[in-house]
Nucleic acid binder design. Structure first.
Lengths: 212, 212
DNA sequence: TGTACATCAGTGAACGCGCGTTCACTGATGTAC
DNA sequence: TGTACATCAGTGAACGCGCGTTCACTGATGTAC
């Protein structure tokens, strides 16, 4: 209570940045207890604000959660794009870097990842949310297109299919093995090694020779 | 209220099979609203019993959920084993049938699947739960062992790795695309087609030639 | 630069609700003799 | 076969609690002139 009062004195009557503070609070609470493990009132409390205040910024808990997810997709897209690096040094390497970036995101931002994929939000709850998700997937798709273009014309699989395969591999590994602290199975290899080997085998199956 | 009274008259003071009825109620509620979307009291209500009754059978909501998951793993194991069919007609085909069985389970039993993989239960919450999960995975592992044994001695990957890859592929596809009614992305191909093509490419990458 | 005023972003009290949990109880069932 | 009794599996009333939500309010900020 003491710190709360002090904080109030510091910040004055108006918070100034409550919207972002609530998103931040939600992220911390999700990281602690999962996307189902916090309430609207919790978020308000964490932000040091009365229980009625969040209503000035979000219609309800789901709207807050959707904003966390939307923000997550934006950062996710940026991270994947960095991994892709416009196809440098070459499409195949860059594609695998996208996979690594995917896993790195799931690992370093488990709260965002959970809000994006495990909160049970309908993807079209909100147009911006859907758009943000689509933009992130577009990175994967672009990468897949560049990779299949490397194959001889006769044996190119559909790029969309390949992008979906990659998504499924990365998501499968991330959600089964890629959560550091969430008491998961113990294995003789890391999630990163699993994803890398899986992608290598998959690419070999597409016709790429493994000599690199 | 009428039907409740009538049902009471039908069944008398004792329910007779409340434990199973609660698990069944939980499954239905999970199917409707997700693993986080029901309460202990809900389950009691669905089973037509007072809110205090479940305490005679389960310590709390998590214990009930864990039992749903345990039962789910048992059926899952049976379904995977049926797909495997002791490696008939041949290891490769049987392996792919395990993949199909995995997806079929996720699709036909979304409530079990959610309790098993998305309820956020720690896998070692309970020894029986963990054991049931391990037994299901053992089917995958057995299948992977038979498959790698087909390869020439020099190029066999570790069977455990292959089993984990298969698990990740199936889980990735199932959780991203394999939920019928849960308003997911619309795609030009089915989850089944995606998983089958992915597994074929993967197997090809391991060195199996695609002529079958 | 000052002043009046509109608007914004908070407060805190209040409410109804359903949940989890406990408790003494009671009806039904099983068993010993 | 009957009877007494222990045990089991339910009831329903009660409780404290925290949540979601509304409301009139108020302090702070921005803007017109």
């Amino acid at each position: 209570m003491g710190w709360k009062k002090r904080e109030r004195e510091e910040r004055g009557y108006h918070h100034g940045n409550l919207r972002e503070a609530l998103i931040q609070a939600a992220r911390e609470l999700i990281a602690e207890k999962g996307p189902a493990g916090f309430t609207f009132a919790d978020a308000a409390r964490s932000a040091g604000v009365s229980a009625a205040a969040p209503y000035r910024h979000f219609r309800d808990r789901d709207a807050l959660l959707a904003d966390v997810a939307r923000e997550g997709f934006q950062r996710f897209e940026a991270m994947l794009a960095t991994g892709w690096a416009n196809g440098r040094p070459d499409a195949l390497t860059a594609f695998q870097n996208v996979g690594k970036a995917y896993l790195a995101f799931a690992r370093s931002e488990p709260a965002y990842y959970a809000a994006m994929f495990e909160a049970g939000l309908p993807p079209d709850l909100n147009a911006e949310l859907r758009a943000a998700g689509d933009r992130a997937f577009a990175v994967l798709r672009t990468a897949a297109e560049a990779v299949v273009a490397q194959l001889p014309a006769g044996q190119r699989p559909p790029a969309l299919m390949m992008a979906l395969h990659a998504w499924a591999m990365a998501h499968g590994i991330a959600s089964l093995f890629g959560r550091g602290d969430a008491g998961r199975r113990s294995l003789p290899m890391t999630a990163e090694e699993l994803l890398e080997s899986q992608m290598l085998i998959y690419l070999q199956g597409l016709g790429f020779t493994g000599n690199r």
